[in-house]
Design a protein around this nucleic acid. Structure first.
Length: 570
RNA sequence: CGGGGCAUAGCGCAGCUUGGUAGCGCGUCUGCUUUGGGAGCAGAAGGUCGGGGGUUCGAAUCCCUCUGCCCCGACCA
């Protein structure tokens, strides 16, 4: 590709509304342009990257025995009504009507459509197992699209759906997808981790997420240094602290704490530590009353764990201030577990605090030296909090680290949620009707571009992993418009590298060298070859890898060998 | 959904308080010079100041309204 003909605009300045480095660099490198909130055009440079990712995904999906198909992005409401999700899905589902007033949605996912295909096409156990996949545009009307293509409303996803006669076959199909995903992300050159995930409302039993590790990630994941335990923060279990309670100290008493409402304020006022405090969160109960969730002052509530407690209303809702006043008789900020007129769930760690500080259930008052079993009844403790860095691993081996990740893949054992509601059945070997069981497997194609940049950039720009770079080689002739030798040498090298199957971008613009270097660094092409008068005299080309600091001088054969070996690596 | 902010040339911004002929940098175009890390000089094009309404002799500027976009929050005991 000749850059003089490629419609590429790079930006020196950072667009004001781009916050993440990947978003900034994608705009600056001329990969994407925003059309509206959460909607992006993929310009030629960006699209090349997407296609590279798709290529790897296709190869590995095909290798794993999956079959590509393509479903409509617009789906009729009837199918969603059949599965029950027309009413469950909420405002994220973009719904609209056609000219006949029939209802449709723009597909955020395709379980209904594929299940409809399955029930029409798959009639016999002989057809099973089968795995269909597609690479397609989805739409989810996110509350708050942000971070460029990281959390867009329209995005490209690879979604796969497998159908099985029995659990054993599903297990095997799921494992095959796990292996394929691991290969895909490895080939793409991403540092990733697999974690246990919440299978959530979808039903199913097993579910794992693939996360690209990045500080800017929106998800929090947890892993152990003692074994291969890794989980989503939502899922990670916090163990009860090791026994060894200290003896309670002096009697519990009240202290005046005027206008002290937060744990931080309380701690600086009383000169104590949050881990010696107890915080009591009031949430709505299923029966219109309140439920109290008791945590240590330095811990965070895990909403998913809290929702599982009997009597707690789903979704978890913090109690309104006037409701708190009505039930407890004082305002939020001074709530404590002693003599609290509502059911209590006490976190393991909170139950282990001795001589704790807590709210007194009276305005401007707290209690100190509170003790379980003495000042209020001991009770069975439960797991309510998010794990923190350094907690023991729930497997008993090692301690946990908490890091940020970008979810780029998710695999699920769905079971029969869709196949039973939509009657997807086959005849088994005995001629009996069996309901299909399903797995589903997603990869966020567009998001991978941003995730890769978050992980691979420097102050000059993007540093593409070779497998997804828009071009393999950036060829930079210096002063080619003045030097026929340079131009001829560059042209010849360009042809030869193309003939080797390399994708070469030659910067044949009549621009100063600094401009060319800066643009090629920004775009992030892995290999750079400079052709200049001074090198030609010595019969060498200047080569620099995007990751290197200093260039090397190579003969034409050395250069070709080096590039050839890089081709086989990916 | 709640709170905050922004909207002026392709991009980044100033001008608005105190109403009086719309500016700067980058980018783009032309010419000359320059050519190994985002060049210099000279010139040029490009703006319904987000839309609508109002106040005024006069509105980018003041008022009302609508729209779009961005940020924060939805863990407060």
């Amino acid at each position: 590709m000749r850059l003089s003909r490629l419609p590429l605009n790079t930006l020196k300045e950072v667009p004001a509304d781009a916050e993440l480095i990947s978003h900034q660099l994608m705009l600056r490198a001329g990969m994407i342009r925003k059309l509206a909130s959460g909607l992006y055009t993929w310009l030629p440079m960006g699209l090349r990257v997407l296609r590279k990712i798709e290529q790897v995904v296709r190869e590995e999906m095909n290798r794993a025995g999956a079959f590509e198909l393509l479903m409509p992005s617009v789906q009729p409401a009837e199918l969603w009504q059949e599965s029950g999700r027309w009413s469950e899905y909420g405002p994220e589902l973009l719904r609209f009507k056609d000219r006949h007033q029939r209802e449709f949605c723009y597909g955020p996912t395709h379980e209904e459509v594929i299940t409809d295909i399955a029930r029409r096409e798959l009639k016999s156990y002989r057809h099973l197992p089968v795995n269909y996949y597609q690479i397609q545009t989805k739409f989810r009307d996110e509350i708050r699209p942000r971070y460029g293509v990281m959390r867009a409303r329209e995005f490209i996803m690879k979604d796969a759906y497998s159908f099985h006669l029995d659990q054993e076959s599903l297990d095997a199909g799921y494992q095959a997808m796990f292996d394929a995903y691991s290969k895909i992300f490895t080939r793409l050159g991403l540092r990733f981790r697999t974690v246990q995930a919440d299978s959530g409302a979808i039903g199913g039993n097993a579910s794992q997420e693939f996360h690209v590790l990045a500080d800017s990630g929106e998800d929090t994941i947890v892993f152990s240094n003692g074994d291969d335990y890794a989980a989503n923060l939502e899922m990670a279990e916090a163990l009860p602290p090791a026994a060894g309670k200290k003896k309670p100290g002096g009697d519990m008493r009240f202290v005046d704490t005027p206008d002290i409402r937060s744990i931080d304020e309380l701690c600086s006022f009383l000169d104590t530590d949050p881990s010696g405090c107890i915080k009591t969160l009031l949430v709505d109960a299923e029966d219109d009353g309140l439920v109290a969730l008791v945590l240590r002052g330095d811990h965070e509530l895990n909403a998913r764990k809290a929702e599982k407690m009997p009597g707690v209303r789903e979704p978890l809702t913090m109690a309104a201030a006037d409701k708190v006043k009505e039930v407890v008789g004082c305002e939020p900020g001074f709530i404590g577990p002693v003599d609290l007129p509502c059911p209590l769930f006490v976190d393991h760690s909170a139950a282990a605090v001795v001589d704790f500080v807590c709210g007194a259930n009276q305005k401007d008052q707290h209690r100190v030296n509170g003790n379980w079993g003495r000042d209020l009844p001991d009770c069975a403790s439960v797991d309510l909090r998010n794990v923190v860095d350094g907690d023991p691993s729930p497997t008993g081996k090692g301690t946990l680290s908490v890091v940020r990740g970008i979810e780029v893949g998710h695999i699920f054992k769905l079971g029969d949620k869709y196949s039973s509601s939509m009657n997807a059945q086959v005849l088994d070997a005995n001629g009996q009707t069996q309901t299909l069981i399903m797995g589903c497997y997603g990869i966020g194609i567009t998001r991978i571009t941003a995730a890769a940049i978050e992980q691979n950039h420097d102050r000059r720009g993007i540093v593409w992993p070779p497998a997804m770079a828009p071009f393999d080689v950036a060829l930079i002739p210096i002063n080619q418009h003045k030097s026929d030798r340079v131009r001829d040498a560059a042209d010849q090298l360009y042809e030869e590298l193309n003939a080797m199957g390399l994708q070469v971008l030659v910067d044949d613009r009549n621009a100063r060298p600094g401009v060319k270097f800066a643009d090629m660094d920004l775009i992030g092409i892995p290999h750079r070859v400079v052709v200049a008068e001074k090198g030609l005299d010595g019969g060498s080309f200047e080569y620099k890898n995007r990751r290197d600091d200093e260039p090397r001088h190579l003969s034409i054969d050395e250069l070709k060998d080096l590039l050839r070996s890089s081709q086989t690596e990916t």
